[in-house]
Structure formats: C-alpha cells, structure tokens
Amino acid sequence: MIKPLLARLQQKHRTIKYPKAEPVLPEKFCGRPVVDASKCTADCKLCINVCPVNAIQKKNSAITIDLGKCLFCSQCAQNCPSGAISFTREYRLAARKRDDLILSDKENKLVRVLDEKAKSLFGRSLKLRQVSAGGCNACEADTNVLGTVVFDLGRFGIQFVASPRHADGILVTGPVPENMRLALEKTYEAVPDPKIVIAVGACAISGGIYEGHTQVNNGADRIIPVDLYIPGCPPHPMTILDGLIRLLGKIE
C-alpha cells in the first residue's frame, strides 16, 4: 500500500493552470498562418504549388488559406521568397462555420458560443461520443489526451461516453471512408435530439490529404451537420480544448 502512495507523491500535481494561465506550447509550434498580401508578388505561385492539399488560393494577388484543409506543414512559408506567409503561435483555430476557416489577411475570428438554449442544455455538462471514421489515430490520441490529469477535461464538464444513447453529441475524426458512412449515420441517429457535432482535424473537415479519393467522403459535414470545426493535422490538444470550452461559453 505504501508504494502506490510514495509513487503518487513522486508524480506530483500535474494539471495545467489553463485557462487561468496561458498554455505552454512547443518552441517550433505552427499555429494560425498569417498572410501579408503587400509582400506577395503578382505572378508567383510557389506556395500554391508546394501545398500538398491545395489549401491556398490566389485571386488578384489576394491569398487565402483554407484552415480546414491546411496540414500546418509550413511548406508554403518555407518556400515563400518574400516572406508573405508565416505561421504564428496562435493555437485558437476552431470555428463554427466552414467559411470562417478560410483565412485571408483579415482578423482572427474566434469560436462563437452556442445559442442561449443550447448553452443552457450543454453548458454545464456535455457528453460526447467519439467516432473515428478513417482517422489515423493522431487526432484520436490528442483528443484522448484531454482525459489525462494534464488537461483534466472533466473539470469543464465535458466527458466522453461509451454509447451514443448517453451522448449530447459526437466528435468525428477522419475523412469518413465509404466503409464508415453507415456507422457514422447510425451513430448520429442514435444520439438523442438536440445534439451537436464536432469535426476534429483536416480529414474530418475537408478530407485532408485524402480529399478526392473515391474511398472517402471528404469529411463529416458531407454526411451530417457540423457545429464546430477544429483544424489541424492533428490539432494540438490545446486547440481542441479551446474549441470545446469556447463553444460552451466557458472562456471569453
């Protein structure tokens, strides 16, 4: 009996101070990209050519980056001769609408909180069912990690449950392979109304690197309505956590 207690002492208290303090992110972390159109030269297409997922578009020298497709590989920034694209350390990336993920050189839109009725229903207790639909186990792992003592998701009233019947919504990862379509539809149907859907990762938002494969459905919102998009490949756990608790109105 004494050994587990000693071990407990040795392991210390590990829950992060967030949201009271800013989270600690890796030095080389790639967060929200920013575009400085003034530095972009008219006929250069290097960033568009290197992007593995065609996330970058250029219309009359205005560059847009689709965060719903972006893998945050930073190839565009590394290959830009004039430094027009750079990646910041901004980890707050989630959005309520698919269009809000299309980034130009305008301001950073943060997640809007649920409407009053939904907030009163889910704000203090949100039970989620996770459906991995073609996810590579990276988005799954960094969702799972929110349950560890470090993030302690339970303190925000959010919990992952073992049945859709017990859930208020589902969290989808992966590009939704054709072989998972029916399972996703059935899981969605099994969640009692009203319900919410959260798409985590580039694959679940747009199909990611698998977009256009005949074997996949290019993301969750082709099958079921999505209420929250959390970009990344995979998103950092802080990006997921920020999206979830901002949706519930737990941080301003």
């Binding site: 073609g134 072989n179 690197i209």
Partner: peptide
C-alpha cells in the same frame, strides 16, 4: 472500415502529397 485507398494513390509518385 478505415480504408482510404492509400496504396492506389501512391502509384505514379513520388509527388508533393
């Protein structure tokens, strides 16, 4: 259930993907 057609997509590569 996780089949995404990777091997077929690799034919003709290597490319940027």
């Amino acid at each position: 259930y996780q089949h995404r057609g990777v091997e077929q997509a690799l034919i003709g590569g290597p490319n940027k993907k």
